[in-house]
Each structure stands twice: as C-alpha cells, then as structure tokens.
Design a protein around this nucleic acid. Structure first.
Lengths: 328, 328
DNA sequence: AGAAGATATGAGAACGATCTCATAAACTTT
DNA sequence: AAAGTTTATGAGATCGTTCTCATATCTTCT
C-alpha cells in the first residue's frame, strides 16, 4: 500500500504539500497540484483513514443504536438519519442492541474509544444513570425512546397524545371494552399507557387488568395476544395494538380463528408501516412521522458537532396523527 | 482524555507494560497488572481505537453493502452475518447503496482507505470489471447476488431451481398463462428468468412478452403490475412475483379490484418474509434460507481473514424450497 | 527602494497506540 | 558455580497522517 510519503517522493515534493492537496488547502500552485494528483493516481494511493482519524481527532461517524433492524420501524428511522448524515459528510455505524443491556453498554463505549464522534439512542435498555457518564465522551441524542431524567437533546413524538387519539377513536366507534398492548419498559411505553387510560377516563370507561398486555412487539406476540383474549371469559371488543406488527399479528390470527374485523373485534395499530395497508382489512393506525424524526435528530447532531458550546437540551416533539382505515 | 501514557505514569510503569496488560500478553506480574487496572479505572481510560487500528493495521470491521434496509430481506441477511461476526470479534459497517453506482463505488473505497478489513456485496450495481481491482485491498465476498465473472467466493442460492420450482407449482396447479415479475439487472435476475422459462418449456407453455415485468421489487411495483395486467386484453391467470413484497402488493391491489385469489388470479412470491404469511390469502412462496446464507458468508470471510494464503473461489449453494400456502 | 503582506513550500512534532529489541532478574540445569 | 532458560520490564521505533512553525519568494503599497 502506498503512503503519503511515497506520493511525496514520486512527485518530488514534501508530505506537507501532498497533504495540502488532499485536504484542499490554499497556497499550492496548480503545477504542483497536478504533480500530486498524477503521483497519487500512479501509485493508486488512498489516505489511510485510521491515520487521518488519529491525527484529526475525529471520525465523521455517528453510532446509531437500534434494538433490531428486522423491526421495520428502525430501517425507516435510519433512512431519515442517513439523508442528513450524508448531506453533512457523516457516516452511520448501525448497532443492533437486540434488547441486551450489555450490548448497549458496549456500543456506548464506541464513544470512549473514539470510534465515533456522536451517538444516537433510539431505544434504551439501561438506566439513565449508567448512560449519563458517556456524555463526557461525546454528544448523545435520544430519538424515539426518551427519559425525563435524560440531560440530552430528545427528538420524540407525543406518545400520550398518540395513544389518546387511538383510544378515543376506538371509543367513538362504540367500543367500551378495549384491550391494550404495550411495552413495559421505557417512558415511551409508560406514556402510551397514560394516554390510553386518559381517553378511557375521559369517557368514564373502566379498564380490565386482564386486557393489558406488555409483550415485546412482534407479529408472533400479536397472535399470542389474540389467542389469550379469545380464552378470556370477559372478552374485549377492540384492541389497541402497540405497533402495526402486533396489529398485523392480531388480525391474522383473528381471521384464522374465524373472527370478523372490525365487527367481532376492532384493531388499531401504531406507526403506519407498509404492512398496515397490506392487511385485510387494512389497519387503522396512529402514524408516526418516522423519517422526519430521523432527519430532525441528525440535524441536531450536526449542530452539536459544530457548535460545541451551545449545549442543547431541548425536547423536540413532532406531530402524530390518526390514519383511519378499515380495522376499526 | 487519558492516554496510555497517563496510565503508565500513574501506575509508575512504562507504556509497554500497560499495553501488555491491555492486550493480555504474558510476562506481567500480577501486582503490576493490578496497578495498571487501578490506574486505568482511576483515569477512566479507554484505548483510542484509531491509534490501535493504525498500529495494528487492522480494523476488525467488515463492510456489508446492501441496496436498502427497508427491504426486509436484508435485515434478515444481516442478522445471519452478525451472529458469526460477533462470535469472531468483528464489527459490521452496514452501507446502503440505494441502487446507486457511485455510492457503491464509494463504499468499496472503505477497503482502500483501510477503514474495513473485508467487504461483502449483497447486490451489485457496477460492472464486475470495475469491482475487481478492489480485491487488491482486501477480501471481498458476494452473497445473494452473484456474477459468473466474479473471481471471489460466492454464497448464493440456486435461483434457477427456485424459480423453476415456483413456475412448476403454478403450472401443476393448472395455469398456462403466467406473468413473470423480475429484475432486469444482475445474474440473479437472469437466472430466475431462466428457471421460470425452463419450467414453461418443459410443459410446452408459451410466454407472452406482455406478461414480463422488470420493475425494482416493492409493494408499489406489485400494485402497478396488477393494474397493468388488468388492462391487458389477454390476461394471465397466475403471477410469479419476484419477491414477497411484490406479491403482497399484487394481492392487495387484486383484492381492491375485486378479484378472488387464487381463483381469479394466482400469485406466488419469493423469499418467505413475514409478510407472506400475513397476507390474506397467505402467500405461497419460494423460501430462501436467508439467515443461513448470512452465516455461511461470514464464516468464509473469517477464514479468508485468518488464512490469507488459501484464496477461496468457491461457489457455495444453499438449498431453496417451495412453501405452499393459499395464494396458488 | 524598503516595508508589509500574500503566496508557496518543507522540516519536524504531534496524534496514541503496539512491537521489536535490549537488558536484567529469577529460575533450571549440568 | 557456570551456563542456559524463562520471566519481567522499559526504551524507542513505528504505523500514516496533519498541523504548526520557519523560511523563502513574490506582490503591492508608500
């Protein structure tokens, strides 16, 4: 492998001048510039990125921690993050935590080992207390999931409002016995539950504890939940699914069990993923502007990376809205 | 940020000894080892990864080029790759080419700039001729997509057989007028077409050129294709969809247009993604062992990284099989 | 013409680790 | 007790860049 030294020698110049050409610095005559380009081409030279990173003390890479890529929510979020990242010459290092505390902590170390310049958390397995110290090593942003104790910028949606909207829609469609599927850990999950219960409360509807499910969201979980519901003595007439994937699983299994949707049981999803409109009946859902959330997040990351002074602790909240389809 | 020098000073030892402790080298007394650990802890020291990479001349990172993460096929493939990568202390750098030649070429440069030790191609936009030179800079493997000219290890499925199986199933279900959706670029696409046509040939069935579609696979493409088919004078009675996503789009749109599946039109997918079993009717499909393909690929990468001598140019072919559901 | 400023280049010190080599002490072996 | 091995440590070179500083030339201004 050719080094900058080799290029310098072949061009009959110093390393400094070659470096200037590589980095587009001023004060290099056109003639020498050409000499350098020629030598680089002849030697098939490419700057060693580790050396550059070491010297420049930055990597132009941002770590993005996601629970899993097989949950389509996250690829869409990454889509948004990447658009703005690319615009700003940043690379993404996508890390799957698979809901594992240790993996999450290991990935946070990327910041300490200077392998990335900043880090974006889209979920959170560990306590905030154990995350906070990592802020010392570089900018951290929370996106999607959030914590009220978190002393970092947060880009999120109003989950209370989102689930409130969903629940309200179910109620206004005549349902009084509504099951709830959510996630037990995380403030996002807690807020959704709050919003859901707020809607019930507003309409003086009682909740039955047997109708609360807190599995990790997946198609399989949806199927399981539907089966459990069918086995109950007192069955709900509607289900608030925590995600479109759960909703899809519920619908599929319900039809398998011979139920009509929404007549026998109504279902409302969350996210508005492609699968929502593919289902039969198509899934009414609470739409999250996923891509926009990603873009906004990366914009903030970029500004943190440039104006280090302005320590931003804002909470950015993006709009959330109900998409009516056929399942309610 | 503390450096190894700081640790050495605090522990009253040399950099060499500290380095030995970090890298678990022999010949360090337990007592000094403890001194080092203590100093590292006190200074909150973490080795700078750029410095390590520069000195060690390796990154323990593998680039994985995928067209897009929003096509669920690739997250599943990554799942497989990651399992074996983690087992071997390797990190993945996931790169979305978005079907863009320039992006693909840029990502290949990761190899030349020594940002990664190896690279896995799961799709291919550029000609092989323009890819070949990159082999000089590190091991490259093709996985999923392939090229007969490619002089690198290839892990793939027998696509000819896969589409043959699919077409045969349609034919044996009584269909004689079968539309084909595929991808024009890439050998994978070409082989699928070959297998498809071979089945027709075997049963002496003629193909109508109007029934061939070569859009990039997506739900939207599926919908479009179905609409086009409906507008044809001579309509096929079955569709071989290039992927489950296309198949899903076709089914959805067909039902929207009031068609019965499989009575009015039969559909067969490819991949066996979760969406296949969610559809109503569930999608008969050609199952690809995606995760296994990922695992096998990374195993080969690991062996290339260790035994550099043994330049492996094998083609590994994994089994492919038909999953019968309701859409045919 | 001389001072001041802009332009152009190179030498050599960093960046933060690892690794080779030299050396010394502590054991074995004869 | 001398010679040979094994164990333990440090000095200093090295990986491949960029960046500061020194210096030299070339313009421009008074």
């Amino acid at each position: 492998m050719a080094t900058i030294e080799d290029v310098a020698k072949l061009a009959g110049l110093s390393r400094s001048t070659v470096s200037r050409v590589i980095n587009n610095h001023p004060y290099v005559t056109e003639r020498k510039k050409q000499l350098v380009y020629q030598a680089m081409k002849e030697l098939d030279y490419y700057p060693n990125s580790s050396a550059q990173r070491l010297r420049k003390q930055k990597t132009d890479t941002i770590a993005v921690l996601v629970p899993s890529l097989t949950n389509p929510f996250f690829p869409f979020l990454i889509e948004g993050l990447e658009i703005v990242a690319v615009e700003n010459g940043l690379q993404l290092l996508i890390c799957q935590t698979h809901q594992n505390k240790d993996k999450e902590r290991n990935y946070l170390q990327l910041l300490q080992t200077k392998q990335v310049d900043g880090l974006i958390l889209t979920s959170l397995e560990n306590d905030w207390d154990s995350i906070a110290p990592f802020k010392e090593s570089g900018p951290i942003i929370m996106c999607n999931e959030y914590r009220s104790e978190a002393t970092v910028p947060v880009v999120r949606l109003d989950q209370v409002k989102g689930s409130y909207l969903g629940a309200k829609h179910l109620i206004e469609s005549g349902h009084k016995k509504i099951a709830y599927c959510g996630n037990n850990k995380g403030e996002l999950g807690a807020d959704r539950e709050t919003g859901f219960l707020a809607a019930l409360d507003e309409y003086n509807i009682e909740m039955n504890n047997q109708w609360i499910f807190r599995d990790t969201p997946s198609i399989e979980a949806g199927k399981r939940i539907l089966r459990t519901i069918l086995s109950l003595e007192d069955k709900p007439t509607a289900i608030f699914a925590g995600s479109d994937e759960v909703g899809a699983g519920i619908i599929k299994e319900a039809k398998l069990q011979g139920l009509q949707i929404p007549e026998d049981i109504a279902v409302i999803g969350f996210d508005d993923l492609p699968v929502a409109q593919l289902m039969e009946p198509s899934l009414t859902t609470v739409k999250q502007p996923i891509k926009e959330m990603g873009q906004k997040t990366m914009e903030i990351m970029v500004s943190m990376l440039t104006n280090q002074d302005k320590v931003n602790e804002d909470v950015i909240e993006l709009p959330i809205q109900l998409i009516k389809r056929e399942s309610v």
